[in-house]
Design a protein around this nucleic acid. Structure first.
Lengths: 141, 141
DNA sequence: ATATACCATACTAAAATAGTCAAGTTTATA
DNA sequence: TATAAACTTGACTATTTTAGTATGGTATAT
């Protein structure tokens, strides 16, 4: 089980914006250089972030992206759902209301995965962008 | 982010053994039929579980597998590490002692993924096989 | 004897991941 | 107003992982 780069890069890039945020928008080129993420890949990711109102874009020379809200208000869970990095721990072949895998009841492990999913989502709901750029993370790249 | 079938099936199959455990060992054929998992795939998984002393095998007719410990003593984390379903949420390209991705410091999101990993591992450390077969899970398949 | 069970290695189809490539449009500013 | 810097869109692709199959055994209870 691992997180995809899409989700991780999205958080990384937004933390970068949060950190370097001023009056002017932050360009993808700068993020690309600072974070070592391909520019073309960033464009893909930011297209999704914009559609989901995590960022707004400023076109033209010296343009770039800005956060729509303050870092405190942007939860990691918001970012993940924007880039469709969803935490789907379970994957019973055929899950219906009645049961899993075509059986009449849910599988014996079902609650366990549900609980885990809940845990992870709670974790990402409690964390926001501001948590990443303050305190002991100050010297991070 | 999702769990692989290998990890999930391993837990499922062991819960099955725990549930139907008696004096005689439980055959993979029975588990395969009850849980709807390919017999050949189960053999692969149980090979790993045996190597890691989660189960012992009894050969010959009416043979099968038995848990080496009581269900209370077998943690989900033990099972996952046996089948190499490791919770590696982070995947910085080049992570050294100094930093990530060839930089001089760890990346800004590093602590976040580490924390998540810790959370998940704690969760699986607290859960054992017995939790799956008692109480509200009694009627599960 | 033999059916039932475990054991081991190699192989593969399909899906997901992690991007790249091409061809634009928009706009600040020199 | 030319143009470079920036955003936008959609298609494409190599690599890796996943989720198994296939094959050919060995061991042992009955």
């Amino acid at each position: 089980m691992k997180l995809s780069t899409k989700g991780r890069y999205a958080v990384m890039a937004l933390a970068d914006i949060a950190k370097f945020d001023g009056d002017s928008p932050v360009s993808l080129r700068d993020i690309s250089l600072r974070q070592g993420i391909s520019l073309l890949y960033l464009e893909q990711i930011f297209s999704m972030l914009k559609k989901n109102q995590i960022v707004t874009s400023v076109r033209g020379s010296n343009g770039g992206y800005k956060l729509t809200k303050s870092p405190e208000q942007i939860k990691i869970s918001n970012i993940f759902s924007a880039v469709q990095e969803n935490i789907k721990t379970v994957g019973c072949k055929k899950e219906s209301k009645k049961g899993c895998n075509g059986k009449s009841a849910k599988c014996i492990t079902h609650n366990l995965w549900d609980e885990l999913e809940l845990h992870i989502n709670e974790f990402f709901n409690k964390k926001n962008l501001s948590d990443l750029i303050k305190g002991k993370n100050e010297n991070r790249v």
